[in-house]
Design a protein around this nucleic acid. Structure first.
Length: 483
RNA sequence: GGGCCACUAGCUCAGGCGGUAGAGCACCGGACUUUUAAUCCGGGUGUCGCGGGUUCGAGUCCCGCGUGGCUCACCA
């Protein structure tokens, strides 16, 4: 049982100490990584190298032993023999357990079987592992343990390391793309007195000294637009967002978004920007814009299909909601089996039909344009149809990837929209926007015409790493505590 | 929140119709100086998620609970 194993390994800790060796060693100077030795073997053969890593396998052969150790770059074999190490050091080598972390100095060589290895001339125990590692070829499968003890997942499942390495590269590529185009990365508060910028329920916290409730941000939008008012014409923020909502394979309570704002631009510019950003990231991280996601081929090569929501809904349901009277639209919705209130406008009816019948069927990246005003309280209304806005979403693999619009910069219109949201809120809609007088004040100073875009970074990482669940791309996803 | 499924050794898993709990790896003891899923000899290490119930007898059947997965709903 585990207790026996723990006790056995703790006894080994004492064994090391009794020999005057601290089993939790100090700094070890490495000359190479495992991959460097393997990649540069022709120059390193016969040379002395120092490497460190975790012991992943131990094959003892009496007076000689083979150990596989792993560092961040990869795996390499160690060869220790009694002749070279002497009685005492060889005895210590045989005391090493799988899972221990060792530092080794030795000579790079190739074994009879052709494997590049290090012949150990001296070694140090750098950290003693008290618990056994998961099984060596099936790895760790239990997703509960994988998420709760991610370090184990990273230790034994190489594809998990690859996913998180790609995540890091994706985030770097996003910054490269935007920085190179003159966008300024900024940091705005995570704690808000008013939670705005999205329709979502916030987490609530409390500031003791000010004795006030604060909300964790549900979006970065309203602060970034204040910066546009202030003259920072091209800004972006890459950061954590918190929404107090359900957990699913596509939702984690805290997730990462990128929001970009550009003064004097509109939603057409945001379409180009979004296509360019995603294509750049895919190309620079994966070397291709065509990926496979959960068995589907997805091609991010621009330009993406662009269609209005009205067209998309008409194609799927045969109904042209925009040509209907309000009562007809409600009736049409109900005929489709959707529940909508009596007073629902044509736009709301259309977006209900869109979400139910269209969104999940859009696999290739698709720009769905001209969202109804009812569901777009921060987007500028269309000049040719005040029921619609200059807003689009990018849908891919049947889910939202990005959301963008020509920003509403008319303070009077914005005030009316907030008032409508507040009315919704008073009817019990906890996700409707709160009134944000300070944001209205900012708009009253004049915000230039602006295009803005927000993109779910975790979802982009999912698409580019072929991950089925958002929990597979977040190092430490939220889990209910055990017990 | 609803439905379905899973939970057995450190890990990965098997356990027909209720009858003393199994394998591989890991681990423990022994042999072995170029192995690599090392090999050979010997050893099974367990609160079958938790709590009740039915039964002569429960890993197995029933009820409740917990955690997780999938899914629907909700949600950008």
């Amino acid at each position: 049982m585990l207790g026996d194993e723990l006790a056995h390994r703790k006894a080994k800790v004492e064994e090391w100490r009794s020999r005057g060796i601290d089993p939790y060693g100090s700094k070890f100077v490495r000359t190479h990584s495992a991959a460097e030795i393997i990649d540069n073997f022709s120059e390193l053969e016969g040379e002395e190298v120092s490497i460190a890593g975790r012991v992943m396998a131990f094959r003892g052969h009496g007076k000689a032993s083979f150990l596989d150790i792993v560092d961040m770059s990869g795996r390499i074999q160690l060869y220790g023999k009694h002749d070279a190490l002497g009685d005492e050091q060889y005895e210590l080598l045989r005391l090493v357990d799988i899972g221990d972390i060792v530092g080794v100095t030795g000579t790079a060589f190739r074994t009879r079987r052709g494997e590049i290895s290090v012949a150990v001339s001296s070694f140090r125990l750098l950290s003693k592992a008290l618990r056994p590692l998961p099984e060596k070829w099936h790895g760790l499968r239990d997703v509960d343990i994988r998420y709760r003890q991610r370090y184990l997942d990273l230790m034994v499942n190489p594809e998990v390391q690859r996913t998180f390495l790609l995540r890091t590269r994706i985030i770097s590529a996003i910054r490269e793309f935007l920085d190179s185009r003159g966008f300024l990365e900024v940091e705005t508060p995570c704690m808000h007195a008013i939670a705005g910028g999205a329709t979502a329920r916030p987490f609530i916290t409390h500031h003791n000294a000010l004795d006030m409730e604060l909300y964790l941000r549900i979006a970065t939008e309203l602060h970034l637009k204040r910066l546009i008012v202030g003259g920072l014409e091209k800004v972006y923020e890459l950061g954590r967002i918190f929404r107090n909502e359900g957990i699913s394979t596509k939702h984690n309570p805290e997730f990462t978004s990128i929001e970009v704002y550009e003064a004097y631009a509109d939603y057409y510019d945001m379409m180009d920007l979004t296509e360019g950003l995603v294509a750049y990231v895919a190309e620079s991280v994966l070397g291709t814009m065509a990926v496979e996601y959960q068995g589907e081929k997805i091609d991010f090569t621009p330009p993406w299909t662009r269609m209005t929501m009205a067209e998309a809904v008409r194609n799927e349901t045969g109904i042209d909601f925009l040509s209907l009277e309000q009562k007809e639209a409600v009736a049409a919705c109900r005929k489709l089996g959707l529940e909508v209130p009596d007073h629902a406008g044509c736009g709301l009816c259309m977006s209900e039909a869109y979400e139910e019948f269209v969104e999940s069927s859009l696999i290739q990246p698709t720009i769905v344009m001209d969202y109804p005003i009812d569901v777009s309280p921060l987007a500028k209304k269309r000049a040719d149809n005040p029921d619609l806005t200059y807003r689009f979403e990018v849908v891919c693999a049947g889910r939202e990837l990005a959301n963008a619009f020509t920003e509403l910069n008319d303070p009077g219109d914005q005030l009316e929209r907030f008032l409508a949201q507040v009315a919704q809120r008073e009817k019990g809609d906890e996700e409707a926007h709160m009134m944000d007088d300070d944001f209205i004040t900012a708009l009253e100073y004049g915000m230039p015409p602006t295009g803005g875009m927000g993109l779910g970074v975790d979802r982009l990482v999912m698409l580019l790493t072929d991950s089925a669940s958002i929990r597979d791309v977040i190092l430490f996803p939220l889990m209910r505590p055990k017990e």
